[in-house]
């Protein structure tokens, strides 16, 4: 038994495991992002629906989901829908949680489109669907791309929460290895390093996108 504080053989041992977990982490981020980007847009559009019967419940849903902890939401869905796989639940709940944040981003983008654009579309008697698709969204979405990027990075850093419902992502692997071998220092230091290596360059890219779009 090696008694030194930092053991490089542990590092060699655990890196393949962490990378295997990292693949799951990335997949959860991608699936969650797709859900968040699409559902977020739907929620934002629903908050501009012509009837209050749609607007009010949607608003309540957004406020409730974004004011309650992701961890508890994960537990809730996990125990209520035992037939679904933990990964499906994890990625979906993560996606829905961030959809509520992204809906606010889209809403700001949509509000930023000048009123004249809506009026011009009305003057051309464009149907509502076509107004959204051809006039409003192309302008609204372009401006909010960096914000969506920021939330995707944030989502990436929240994926460890999925470990609590036994999704085998990176931190789950780290915890399991740590408790099996009683080596915590190496595994959590490496996990932190991998997060930093992945998220910092991505955040630089988002920053460049912000600059290019003139924010």
């Amino acid at each position: 038994m090696n008694t030194s504080i930092w053991d490089w053989t542990v590092v060699e041992d655990v890196i393949p495991l962490l990378l295997k977990g990292f693949a799951v982490t990335l997949l959860a981020t991608v699936v969650g992002s797709v859900i968040a980007i699409l559902l977020g847009l739907l929620l934002a559009m629903a908050r501009r629906a012509p009837t209050r019967l749609v607007r009010v419940p949607v608003r309540a849903f957004v406020e409730f989901v974004r004011s309650t902890p992701l961890l508890v939401q994960l537990f809730t869905v996990y125990v209520l829908l035992p037939s679904l796989s933990p990964f499906v639940i994890g990625a979906s709940v993560l996606g829905i949680h961030y959809a509520t944040y992204m809906s606010e981003v889209y809403r700001a983008g949509i509000d930023g489109v000048p009123k004249g654009q809506w009026e011009a579309a009305t003057a051309l008697s464009m149907p509502r669907g076509r107004t959204w698709q051809a006039v409003i969204l192309p302008q609204a979405v372009r401006n909010v791309l960096p914000a969506l990027g920021n939330y995707i990075i944030s989502m990436f850093k929240d994926t460890p929460f999925l470990a609590v419902i036994t999704v085998h992502e990176m931190v789950f692997q780290a915890q399991e290895y740590g408790s099996d071998h009683f080596r915590y220092l190496e595994v959590f230091t490496l996990a932190a390093a991998i997060f930093l290596i992945a998220s910092y360059p991505t955040s630089l890219l988002v920053r460049r996108l912000e600059k290019r779009l003139g924010h």
């Binding site: 944040y101 944030s154 988002v206 920053r207």
Partner: peptide
């Protein structure tokens, strides 16, 4: 009033120093 969301996502996500 309810809390406003951060429409830039900067407070939540990325590093690399805001503008």
């Amino acid at each position: 009033r309810l809390r406003e969301a951060d429409p830039t996502g900067r407070s939540a996500g990325a590093g690399a120093g805001g503008g």
